[in-house]
């Protein structure tokens, strides 16, 4: 049994938050789905609320402070990412977007990402499709076909979760687990060649002129 790493980014602001609740459901379902496929999983949760000031500082200074660096590395180094945001003004929250704004270019390329969103009303049901998917397409991440949107009313069923929502969570987790297991484990952040190992040699740079 190999071990996979999963990062969960939750942009919920209240405590407890339904965004975190959805993130936890997605993560639990994914761990179970990976176990069915013969994989152990370690999960790191990044609560963006804890990084609200760190992210604002990063916008101003251009670099992530130590606390934020740890969370960024957890996300960029993971085999798969679960990203969940509340809907603010018909889109992902500013805090959620800021986290993805401060990542270095290309760090999520090819990474399987399971998308989730929460809102007070079902009228925002397509927010994953019209807001989140374009963002992750730009980041060249591989978004799972099923995204999971949960409105307040979805939390009202038996056992706290509507049966339909539970079904969507399970289907999404299964698709996500298939994507994660279909890929080699994420390489350590620094490969043998060391940092900047991918920089073209000067001869190549000169030829590019």
């Amino acid at each position: 049994m190999s071990t996979r790493t999963l990062a969960v980014v939750s942009a919920g602001l209240s405590v407890p938050s339904s965004t975190r609740l959805l993130a936890d459901r997605l993560s639990t379902a994914t761990v179970a789905a990976l176990r069915e496929r013969g994989e152990d999983t370690t999960v790191t949760v990044v609560e963006l609320r804890d990084h609200a000031r760190d992210l604002a500082d990063n916008l101003v200074t251009g670099f992530a402070n130590e606390a934020l660096r740890g969370s960024i590395e957890a996300v960029t180094g993971a085999d798969g990412l679960i990203a969940v945001t509340p809907v603010f003004s018909a889109s992902y929250s500013g805090l959620f977007k800021t986290f993805f704004d401060v990542l270095d270019k290309g760090v999520l390329a090819g990474k399987p990402v399971l998308l989730g969103a929460t809102a007070g009303t079902a009228r925002h049901s397509l927010v994953i499709e019209h807001a989140m998917r374009p963002l992750f397409a730009h980041l060249r991440a591989i978004a799972v076909p099923t995204g999971v949107f949960a409105a307040s009313e979805d939390w009202g069923g038996d056992g706290g979760v509507d049966r339909a929502l539970a079904g969507r969570i399970e289907r999404a987790a299964g698709e996500f687990a298939d994507l994660v297991t279909g890929r080699p484990s994420a390489a350590p952040t620094e490969a043998l060649e060391g940092p900047f190992g991918g920089t073209p040699s000067f001869e190549t740079l000169l030829r590019g002129v």
């Binding site: 200074t61 251009g62 670099f63 130590e66 073209p200 040699s201």
Partner: peptide, 23 residues
């Protein structure tokens, strides 16, 4: 930009890092 560090190295020139706004 590592390309600039590469350029400095290629020519055997000096490399200066601003240093002050970064960890």
């Amino acid at each position: 930009s590592p390309q600039i560090a590469e350029q400095a190295a290629y020519y055997g020139d000096g490399f200066f890092h601003n240093h002050i706004f970064w960890p």
